[in-house]
Design a protein around this nucleic acid. Structure first.
Length: 556
RNA sequence: UGGGGUGUCGCCAAGCGGUAAGGCACCAGAUUUUGAUUCUGGCAUACGUUGGUUCGAAUCCAGCCACCCCAGCCA
């Protein structure tokens, strides 16, 4: 694990844990949990929670559970369960044998509910959702007691039992906590803890037709697992009094401390599951794992490295202030990791034929280049060099803009890892489009400078005969507004229409013939690319652009 | 206008009464057979605001302002 020996100061949660450890609060234990609801795919925002929870456990030599918060079967399914497990593992974390489901506790939760009824702290309510809303009051006015609030314990017990046995239709009754209808905290105004839902559950099948609510389930699940620190996002701050209230009424094995932190937001994307699901359902992207999606599956397919994501999360820190982090920061971490680890290769995205007129057709030289400029351990690769080759169309201009360092008519340029060439002739097709460059090669410039002149430009190339045709998918950000959510109009109005460009005529150097899915490379002077994990085949490679190289050349 | 939170450089973020860390971005140079990488230097008399306490305040107190969250039988 990347035990980032970073000098990042301890965040406020770790300060709390340090204090707890010092005071012996949880008898020296640190036990956290990552509790996703299986109602969608995990995204980069969840990465923060995963790294925080699993990372905290690691840091303190404690444990972290993976627990599915599966109390609403309506929105959940097994596909989501599986993808969540895969994403957590991909990110580099392991829950060992501690995989739990809130639904594992349905029996115990039911018994605890009966205990609450017996204490007169819960009652069966017949108010409809509309009525309940009315009775709840508003932000500034207190609520009123439900007509059922004083129902007898015996009656509540009987009714709750009948709810469970399926005697009533959905919505007929709810079980509510009896707390305080006048509380300034609306969460304490007799919250519903059980509702009737005749709904098949992905874990418990048709065993249940009543399902517990989050507020009631989460604290008890934490307690049963003897979690010490229950980390969640800011919007649950108001729920903490309820979390504590429930545990205070019950005889549970522990009373975990809920601590809230700010969720991660990144610009130029959306992070809500509802919107991500909408993008998928409306076909605006190819699926949850579309390389443009901020989902962990999407980032994975795009070529993001777990190491980079972990470093990023570490870098932005954990606080209670809402923030919008620039994607640039994520991209920095990505490039940093990829630059250090990705083998280099040459790929020509938009080929332009070059014939070296002074090199005989039978010239068959094999150049040997390092796979990495700074890490010799990555080895070397061989590239055939001969009379015919391809360069990228963007590396030649008939009428170059000021500052253009590449090939121009009559000009010279270095072929990366090879020789210096001069463009003697520009051949055009019937339509007037440049179709070929006829150049001469200075055979005295391999590994050394040209004599008597300075050649600044270096361009990449591939040998014509042995280059491998591949498909390249160029990705750009999905939205062209830094805050699609906050922008005027619908967030979909800000989708970047050019976020995907497919190039079918690209060519890569022959050393890439054996590239396998998910293998990452730097295509020199272009960017980092990854072999697509789903669509690439050995005889038809597909590369996804992960992220371009930084480009400081500002064209005039 | 009830309750709960947050406000330190363009973006993150340290700081916990002793006189503004760091990263990203940006700018300027150097090296470079990737206009990449690397390297060097620059980048908040200022901490939402107004008062107060103090020898001394981003840090303590009070008022004000801005922004976020809460009225699901969602999580």
């Amino acid at each position: 694990m990347s035990e980032s020996a970073s000098n990042t100061p301890v965040n406020f949660i770790h300060q709390i844990i340090n204090d707890d450890l010092a005071s012996g609060k949880h008898s020296g234990r640190v036990h956290t949990r990552f509790p996703p609801e299986p109602n969608g795919y995990l995204h980069i925002g969840h990465a923060k929670s995963i790294c925080l929870n699993f990372g905290t456990a690691q840091k303190y030599g404690g444990l972290c559970n993976l627990r599915f918060d599966d109390t609403n079967p309506e929105k959940e399914n097994l596909e989501y369960v599986e993808s969540i497990k895969a994403s957590v593992k991909w990110l580099g974390f392991d829950w060992d044998d501690r995989l739990y489901y809130a639904s594992d506790y349905f029996d115990q939760l039911y018994e605890y509910a009966i205990a609450l009824i017996r204490q007169g702290k819960a009652y069966v309510c017949s108010l409809t959702p509309e009525q309940a809303r009315e009775y709840r009051g508003t932000l500034t006015e207190p609520g009123r007691p439900s007509p059922d609030r004083e129902r007898s314990i015996e009656e509540n017990l009987a009714l709750f039992s009948r709810m469970k046995s399926g005697e009533f239709p959905d919505g007929a009754f709810t079980l509510r906590l009896r707390i305080d209808m006048a509380s300034p905290n609306i969460n304490l105004r007799d919250p519903v803890i059980y509702r009737i839902k005749h709904q098949h559950h992905h874990q418990t099948g048709d065993t249940w037709c009543i399902y517990p609510m989050y507020d009631y389930t989460h604290c008890i699940s934490d307690a049963l697992e003897r979690i010490t620190h229950s980390l969640c996002t800011l919007e649950f701050e108001d729920h903490r009094p309820l979390y504590d209230w429930v545990l205070d009424q019950l005889d549970v094995p522990a009373h975990p401390q809920q601590i809230e932190f700010a969720r991660l937001n990144i610009d130029y994307t959306v992070m809500s599951k509802r919107k991500l699901k909408q993008l998928v359902d409306e076909g605006l992207v190819s699926g949850w794992s579309d390389p443009r999606m901020p989902t962990l599956e999407g980032l994975r397919r795009r070529g993001y490295a777990p190491e980079a994501i972990r470093h990023f999360v570490d870098m932005v820190g954990v606080t209670k202030s809402n923030s919008l982090v620039e994607v640039g920061q994520l991209e920095f971490c990505l490039r940093e990791f990829l630059d250090a680890t990705a083998p280099r290769a040459m790929a020509v995205l938009r080929p332009l034929r070059v014939t070296l007129t002074n090199v005989p057709a039978e010239h068959a030289e094999r150049l040997v280049l390092p796979r990495h400029p700074k890490n010799p351990a990555l080895g070397e690769r061989e590239i055939p060099f001969g009379r015919e080759l391809f360069i990228d169309r963007s590396d030649f201009e008939e009428v170059p803009p000021a500052g253009f360092k590449r090939l121009v008519p009559g000009g010279e340029v270095r072929l990366r890892g090879a020789y210096i060439i001069r463009c003697d002739d520009v051949v055009k097709d019937a339509a007037g489009r440049v179709s070929e460059l006829r150049c001469s090669c200075d055979l005295a410039t391999l590994g050394k400078n040209a004599e008597g002149r300075k050649v600044k430009g270096v361009i990449h190339w591939v040998p014509a005969a042995e280059a491998i045709p591949v498909e390249v998918r160029l990705y750009d950000r999905l939205f062209n507004h830094p805050a699609p959510d906050a922008a005027e109009g619908d967030y979909r109005d800000h989708i970047n229409a050019d976020s995907l460009q497919v190039l079918r005529d690209a060519l890569v150097e022959p050393s890439l013939a054996a590239a396998v899915p998910e293998q990452r490379f730097q295509f020199e002077r272009e960017g980092y690319f990854v072999v697509d994990r789903f669509d690439s085949r050995p005889d038809a490679l597909v590369f996804n652009l992960t992220i371009g190289l930084k480009d400081s050349w500002t064209k005039p």
